[in-house]
Design a protein around this nucleic acid. Structure first.
Length: 616
DNA sequence: CGACCTTTGAAGCGG
DNA sequence: CCGCTTCAAAGGTCG
């Protein structure tokens, strides 16, 4: 059985046994609680990203210091989900129905999930049993995957561990900053690692030793920051591998991490032998994610081959490309066209885009959610994951951003000439998502995705929109005049989670790109909307929300600011900024606005968050 | 069997 | 510079 949670007492763990949900409204309420955190996160996001990048250079020590949520133990509310899983009702209008069902399902599940903190105490990370999770062939069904609980390193930090950590740190060779950001606290402690680490599951077949790609091998771009030189430190000794398997398991970051004496891409054995203290190594889970990205079976094109001879996961050869390998054959029949295409592709293997932070997160968490929720539909699961993502603490998100950054770097090194555009072209040829776009657009136009100004004035009166809204950023108007807030995202409950980040006020935060995400997040709603008249309700929420307590994150921030932990983390993340940004507190309310809660009822109850607030 | 759905983030393209 | 579009993962669902 996959679930290890139970032991932890994590509510989430309560998988199958679920108690029926009461009202969705409640769920939403709970969600709102998260919203605050989301806001913070959003604000921080940008900083995180930057941080990750900046981190490279900076070496601060403070990894340990910050323990985010630890303190904030959210009370674990027992989570009750319906054991019975209702497949989304299919109905007449498939789309609407499906949507609704998805939304509903998501809400239900999510709500349930949210009741209990996704990561209570932030303790665990579920590691998928990778037997072959990433194989495109997908021999294993998702459900088949097993997950191991891992403690999140940060949480674990304790006095003793700190010392050890420090030691590790010291021990580390001057690791390339680029690879590891000190600021991001990702150090994994050995003892924390579950003995059965998922990594073990990696199939050996995947990895055959080989030589690293030429370009990689020799050098690492000093510039890019991905160091090739042997870095003992990079490899984590802690990596949870069973002895036997170890050799075969590639280091998750193996591509990036060079080992002493070993080939740069020693996926095989080398990878794990050496201590891998650095942030990169981070969590086993994280690493697993990365490793997952590199499926063995994919055959890489010449240069794309990994040192080990293993192609980078990103590369998909047409044949191998999807699970439906057999289908390929049939496809061949379809037309010469394809044949030609194939040939072309062969010549030019399809290199996938590197996964972004959220995608990495999804990969890691999907199974968990599936297990917990009993939902299988990816759409619904993704909604939940999206919410959870928003609920993640800065640190947590930072980890993923960091991973994503590394992935991108790696990807760049592996495929120097590659550009996302290549894939665009491919699709165009293949013709992939067309309808989708149309639909999206349509939806977008709808009030369904309410952006403050957009909802308020409509597309027609774009000129009236505040600049940020026009840019898809946070609505100033909305924030500023809280009262003015029109309705939030009414539409979907799903939105609940996505709060607007505190924002506006903080123009400074360097969130260039990040800001975008935040805003986007805020408007995820598309799902729900169809149903109805949420807007009006938004008002209520607004009030409530405003009253709502600050998110747990706030604590962090505060603590960070005031307290020590500032060091590494903060520095990198800029927590200070964050905290500062929020200080007024006014921001929160605003964000609250955003948070969408459709139900009036949703309002007030989110005790937990409040509690956390007390910290102050 | 392929496209869609859904999420966030990164990147490309065009104005 | 800004906005829009595409793609990345994933699995159920529909045409």
């Amino acid at each position: 059985m996959p679930q290890l949670n139970g032991g932890g007492g994590d509510d989430l763990g309560a998988n199958d046994e679920m108690i029926s949900f009461k009202d969705e409204g409640e769920q939403e309420e709970k969600i709102s609680e998260n919203s605050s955190a989301e806001r913070d996160l959003a604000d921080v996001k940008s900083s995180l990203v930057n941080e990750s990048e900046t981190n490279q250079n900076s070496s601060s020590d403070s990894e340990l210091t910050v323990l985010p949520l630890c303190c904030v133990q959210r009370s674990a509310v027992s989570l009750h989900l319906k054991a019975e899983r209702r497949p989304p009702p299919r109905a007449e209008t498939f789309r609407d129905k499906t949507r609704e069902s998805l939304e509903e399902a998501a809400k239900r599940q999510d709500g349930g999930l949210f009741k209990s903190p996704p990561y209570p105490g932030y303790p665990f990370i579920m590691i998928p049993d990778l037997t072959s999770p990433y194989l495109s062939n997908g021999s294993l069904s998702p459900t088949a995957r097993t997950y191991l609980q891992m403690k999140w390193p940060l949480l674990d930090v304790q006095a003793g561990s700190l010392q050890s950590r420090q030691a590790l740190k010291d021990a580390r060779s001057p690791s390339p900053a680029h690879i590891v950001s000190n600021k991001v606290p990702v150090v994994q402690h050995p003892h924390h690692v579950h003995p059965l680490t998922p990594l073990i599951t990696y199939s050996n077949e995947h990895f055959t030793p080989g030589n690293p790609p030429p370009h990689l091998q020799t050098d690492v771009d000093p510039k890019t920051g991905i160091p090739r030189p042997p870095h003992p430190s990079d490899i984590s000794p802690y990596y949870p591998l069973s002895p036997g398997t170890v050799g075969q398991i590639p280091h998750p970051l193996g591509w990036l991490v060079p080992q002493q004496g070993q080939p740069v891409y020693p996926i095989t054995t080398g990878g794990f032998r050496h201590p891998y203290p650095t942030a990169l190594t981070v969590n086993a889970s994280m690493s697993s994610l990365l490793s997952s990205r590199f499926p063995p079976h994919m055959v890489p094109p010449h240069h794309s081959l990994h040192t080990t001879g293993i192609p980078h996961p990103a590369i998909v050869t047409p044949n191998v490309k999807q699970e439906s390998s057999h289908s390929d054959i049939s496809t061949l029949n379809s037309s010469k066209h394809q044949d030609q295409k194939k040939e072309d592709e062969k010549k030019k293997p399809h290199i996938k885009k590197p996964l972004n932070a959220f995608m990495l997160y999804m990969k890691e968490m999907r199974a968990k959610v599936v297990a917990e929720c009993t939902l299988k539909e990816s759409a619904a699961i993704n909604q939940i994951l999206g919410r959870r993502w928003h609920a993640l603490s800065r640190e947590e998100q930072a980890k993923y951003y960091e991973l994503a950054r590394k992935e991108r770097q790696l990807h760049m090194q592996l495929y120097p000439g590659w550009s996302a555009r290549d894939n665009y072209a491919a699709n165009q040829q293949g013709k992939k998502k067309k309808r989708k776009r149309e639909k999206q657009q349509a939806d977008g136009n709808d009030a369904n995705t309410p952006k403050k100004c957009r909802a308020l004035f409509g597309l027609d009166q774009l000129s009236l929109w505040c600049k940020p809204c026009r840019r898809k950023k946070k609505c100033i108007r909305y924030i500023q005049g809280e009262g003015s807030c029109v309705s939030p995202p009414s539409s979907d409950g799903s939105l609940l989670e996505s709060p607007p980040s505190s924002p506006s006020m903080v123009p400074n935060s360097p969130p260039s790109k990040e800001s975008k995400p935040q805003t986007e997040q805020m408007q995820p709603l598309s799902l729900t909307m169809k149903s109805g008249p949420l807007v009006s309700s938004s008002h209520h929420q607004h009030h409530h929300l405003s009253m709502a307590p600050p998110p747990p994150l706030a604590l962090l921030d505060n603590s960070g600011a005031g307290k020590t932990h500032g060091p590494a983390h903060n520095g990198s993340l800029d927590p200070s900024d964050v905290s500062s940004s929020r200080p007024s507190g006014s921001a929160q309310p605003a964000s609250a606005c955003n948070s969408h809660s459709l139900l009036p009822s949703s309002a007030p109850t989110q005790p937990l968050s409040l509690v956390t607030k007390s910290i102050d």
